[in-house]
């Protein structure tokens, strides 16, 4: 008699690989439906259920590939990267990694970037809750306190660095326009993704703002940030630039706390 552990391993093996070696003889056969047909309900259901989840999380990638190609790619992903998540909402989190590592798909770097971008949007939608602060809090500070000021950014903020115009593909899809021509940037383009209210937002940032966000995330204080910006622009432009970015971040809901040195 097969023990519970062996039976479950064999059943799961069938779901993933449709190999009935260990499980077929364990299943009751009858005239209405054979053991193989009964197991096939689970095998097909497993793939179809997860493909549907991926179609919903990667809407633009699915449109770009078309139903059949997307389904084939998604099947390969589910096969190679079986879910280890309790929550089905995270099933797509390694799609971009799969596309990078798969010998079949690794040449399609646009698909990989689109997957990265769409997953970042999805993660932002369900990411950690935080309340943004208003720019009025900044105005309340004494001017000599600014140098020691640091900022806590929204926990959903992610900085992506993209080789291709994946963002334009995303926009074209939702605007129901023709796909743009594929572009490869000479330098990586930084794009930030975050949640404001309940919606995922994104925008490109230039190299100075990307650097600023990086050091703010690392906990640097405003005086150090301004000093570092001198590498990107003439000194007289630093203060207006830094203030302009801060204003934008407040408007974007990116700042959730102002911290002053003890």
């Amino acid at each position: 008699m097969t023990d519970l552990a062996t039976l479950q391993q064999s059943f799961q093996h069938y779901l993933r690989h449709q190999d009935g070696a260990g499980i077929l003889t364990e299943i009751v056969n009858d005239a209405a439906l054979s053991a193989q047909q009964r197991l096939a309900v689970y095998h097909e259901g497993y793939y179809l259920r997860l493909i549907e989840i991926l179609e919903n999380d990667f809407v633009v990638l699915a449109r770009l590939l078309g139903e059949e190609s997307f389904s084939q790619m998604a099947r390969a992903y589910i096969h190679d990267f079986p879910s280890q998540y309790r929550n089905i909402q995270y099933v797509g989190c390694r799609l971009s990694e799969f596309l990078a590592r798969s010998p079949v798909y690794h040449e399609h770097s646009l698909w990989r970037e689109l997957a990265t971008f769409e997953w970042a949007l999805e993660e932002a939608r369900i990411g950690e809750q935080a309340t943004s602060v208003s720019i009025a809090q900044l105005a309340e500070l004494a001017p000599d306190a600014w140098g020691e000021l640091s900022f806590v950014l929204h926990p959903t903020l992610k900085v992506l660095r993209l080789h291709h115009n994946a963002v334009e593909y995303y926009q074209a899809s939702y605007a129901e326009q023709a796909w743009p021509e594929l572009l490869t940037h000479t330098e990586l383009q930084a794009c930030i993704v975050w949640r404001k209210q309940f919606a995922a937002h994104y925008r490109y940032v230039n190299s100075a703002e990307a650097w600023m966000l990086g050091v703010v995330l690392a906990g640097e204080r405003f005086a150090q940030i301004c000093a570092g910006l001198c590498d990107f622009m003439p000194e007289e432009e630093v203060a207006p630039y830094a203030l302009g970015r801060l204003q934008q971040w407040f408007a974007d809901g990116l700042i959730t706390r102002l911290c002053l040195a003890e």
């Binding site: 364990e26 689970y42 259920r49 079986p82 879910s83 309790r86 089905i88 099933v91």
Partner: peptide, 25 residues
Amino acid sequence: CWTGVEGYNMHDLLPLPYTEEALKH
């Protein structure tokens, strides 16, 4: 039911064998 083994989740409600072993477990 069970939903997976070996750290994987099949995201399905899979039936158990109705045995003494499964009952105890």
